[in-house]
Design a protein around this nucleic acid. Structure first.
Lengths: 143, 143
DNA sequence: CCAATAAAATACTTTTTTGTCTTTTATTAT
DNA sequence: ATAATAAAAGACAAAAAAGTATTTTATTGG
């Protein structure tokens, strides 16, 4: 569904959303441990997300990654789009680049329905949800 | 969504289903041209599908790939499972291997719904549909 | 039998993705 | 100021996916 990079990225963003109450910053090591992912790899991914403006960071001691009020409004869809592009939102299920309403592939219409529901779901799931859900017994990110 | 290999595989199977009326066999070259895919690559994929019993083949002149009545009952889901495995049907959206009903990831339930609809759709789309739809103006596999 | 044909098997190459490591830059607290 | 800290940048390595080419095996029609 998503690339490994994207899976890690989403997990990290959710983790940061959960941990970064009141602008407290989280370090790469903490994040990597918290979501069970390779440390150096997640560092690279987070730097990319920061460059693209989905995430905020601060260097030096007491530094780390965090999400302010605005960044917490970011949806899972935004993260996916930033990392995997929008193939999953608009691409043909069979990988045909000319597939369209007027020249649909054999499963175009069936796929469209699924894609749209997925789109809606990802667009409507925002990081601030997890920020609030923190204490509840749902949303495990590691074993 | 699917790997390139899987996309090609599905396209080829649909193409064969459309072309192989009355046990007429289709050659790799024909298939590759018909679905706009690299010839050697699709050959390898089709051999794998044949080995797994989803597709039938015959060597020598007048040989090629074909689908008999039984093989035409194969669903898109069967093809996906044979090539990409069942990650897409049962895997966690965030790639967590322990994610489950009792220890759900933060988007487990939302994902489950989508996954199930996709599952249903792929399971309910069978090759014989395309066999019949052949002449109609739907189901383009190439530009 | 033999030449032609087409899939099967297999070896190989390229590209992309995933993952690691090192160096640089910014920031803080002493 | 400076030592410690942490992200940024970028180079490097390994693994997986995608793609190509060559050889072998089965089958047919002359």
């Amino acid at each position: 569904m998503f690339s490994k990079t994207c899976e890690y990225g989403i997990r990290a963003m959710i983790y940061i959303a959960q941990q970064s109450k009141n602008d407290i910053k989280v370090g790469v090591k903490d994040i990597a441990a918290g979501i069970d992912s390779p440390e150096y790899f997640i560092a690279k991914i987070l730097q990319e997300l920061t460059r693209k403006g989905l995430l905020l960071s601060f260097k030096g001691p007491t530094g780390g990654f965090y999400l302010d009020k605005k960044a917490l409004q970011c949806s899972i869809a935004d993260i996916v789009r930033a990392i995997d592009g929008d193939k999953i939102f608009s691409g043909c299920g069979l990988g045909l680049d000319y597939c369209s309403e007027s020249k649909p592939c054999p499963i175009h219409h069936e796929f469209k329905k699924i894609r749209e529901e997925m789109s809606d779901m990802l667009n409507n799931t925002r990081l601030d949800e997890f920020h609030e859900k923190l204490a509840k017994d749902i949303g495990f990110l590691k074993r």
